[in-house]
Amino acid sequence: MKIKCPYCGVRDQGEFSYEGDATIKRPQTDDADAWREYVYSRNNPRGPHKELWSHIAGCRAWIVVERNTLTHEVYNSYLPGENKDD
């Protein structure tokens, strides 16, 4: 796979570290359900998936990657907060 780092350009997946579901949000309250969702529940779709990758062997930016888990096609990548949907 190839991933486009917003800072460094298109790089091989070997430079990145996969860090999981990008949709989980650290709760700001003590709500038990919210914490369970954050710590233990994950989106796990068979298809398009919004996920975090760290450019660990590069600029070390954490980026959001939209990728298909069935075909491995990478649709899009951007810095967190850059996408209106987030």
Partner: peptide, 13 residues
Amino acid sequence: DYYNSYAQRGNLP
């Protein structure tokens, strides 16, 4: 391979 996948195939790294 360290990424979510349903593809039943992996990559060279």
